[in-house]
């Protein structure tokens, strides 16, 4: 019962800020809403007994990603968005499509399997940090290494992109 109540609470905590984010004109508001949504998702993870992921979610998203977002927002001083992207009339078709898609998937999920938990669920162990480590360094070692490489590549790329572009012919030594 407790689980149910918490689920609805966390689901609301995930979805409502997401909706507000889509509607929010103020970018800083959007970022703050994103944090709340992420913390909601992290809580859902915890509810699903994936504690490590919950903590990682908070650490990476709330702790780093949104800070980065805020940093960029403040740095660029974007200001408010005057209006939405296009006239709503143009978006009726795609929006309707995705509303339908959402409805369909909801219906499909409701009608399909998974309405009840499988046997032995309660007893199955939570995702511990140790088992995570085991999997990462055995079964998913290649993926793990690749991710590491990806991160390195991303880092190099970011440094390259965010270098201040100096117009050709205007290069001065030590100006960086």
């Amino acid at each position: 019962m407790m689980h149910d109540v918490l689920f609805y609470l966390f689901a609301a905590m995930t979805l409502a800020p997401a909706l507000l984010l889509v509607c929010s004109r103020n970018t800083v508001n959007a970022a703050m809403l994103m944090i709340v949504s992420f913390i909601g998702a992290a809580s859902l993870f915890a509810l699903l007994q994936a504690y490590l992921l919950a903590v990682l979610q908070v650490m990476v998203y709330a702790g780093a990603v949104v800070v980065l977002f805020l940093f960029i927002i403040m740095l660029l001083d974007v200001g408010h968005e005057g209006r939405l992207r296009a006239a709503l009339s143009k978006l009726v078709a795609p929006l309707a499509f995705f509303a339908a898609l959402g409805c369909c998937s909801v219906l499909a999920i409701l009608s399909g399997r998974g309405g009840e938990a499988p046997a032995g669920l309660e007893a199955s162990p939570a995702a511990s940090a140790e088992s995570f480590g085991m999997l990462l360094f055995t079964k998913y070692q290649l993926a793990f290494e690749l991710t590491g490489f990806l991160l390195l590549a991303a880092m190099v790329g970011v440094i390259f992109i965010s270098r201040r572009a100096i117009p050709a012919g205007n290069r001065t030594e030590g100006k960086e």
């Binding site: 689901a11 929010s24 959007a30 859902l44 509303a99 998937s105 409701l110 998974g114």
Partner: peptide
């Protein structure tokens, strides 16, 4: 399970609507 999936589906659609509607690249 279904409940979680519904939450996931709704969150996905919300996110997608945002991608369509918003002009600000950061958002």
């Amino acid at each position: 399970l279904n409940h979680y999936l519904i939450v996931a589906a709704l969150l996905f659609c919300t996110g997608f609507a945002g991608v369509l509607l918003r002009r600000n690249v950061i958002v």
